[in-house]
């Protein structure tokens, strides 16, 4: 079968199913990303503040927030007076 270069994903889509887990994972990440970015639009926030607003375990907030920093959506802001917790802000 002739497969057009640059569109080979269509070929594999016909041959294999995308797992439900992968689809669910994407859906959940997109929701969390939107929630975090919307909250950071309003003001800079710490992990603790984000946790209280989202109601998600702190370690999960750290994971998603750090991933958003890595992918260039969020940047690290100032550290508190005790030099313990950073706040995070949207990357302009």
């Amino acid at each position: 079968m002739e497969v057009e270069k640059g569109k080979t994903f269509k070929y594999l889509r016909e041959k294999r199913d995308v797992s439900q887990e992968a689809k669910d994972n994407l859906k959940s990440f997109n929701q969390i990303k939107k929630t975090i970015l919307d909250l950071l639009k309003e003001s800079d926030l710490t992990v603790d503040q984000l946790t209280q607003k989202i109601g998600m375990p702190k370690n999960e907030v750290v994971f998603y927030l750090m991933s958003l920093v890595k992918f260039g959506f969020v940047q690290t802001g100032a550290i508190d007076d005790m030099d313990e917790y950073f706040s995070y802000k949207l990357k302009k």
Binding site: K7, T8, Y11, R16, V18, L26
Partner: peptide, 21 residues
């Protein structure tokens, strides 16, 4: 295993080197 086969990577790749075949 985690790919959703949306093709976004393939569209973005300048040398068209993504090959799902």
């Amino acid at each position: 295993g985690n790919c959703i086969l949306c093709g976004a990577c393939e569209k973005a790749c300048p040398p068209k080197c993504i090959d799902f075949t």
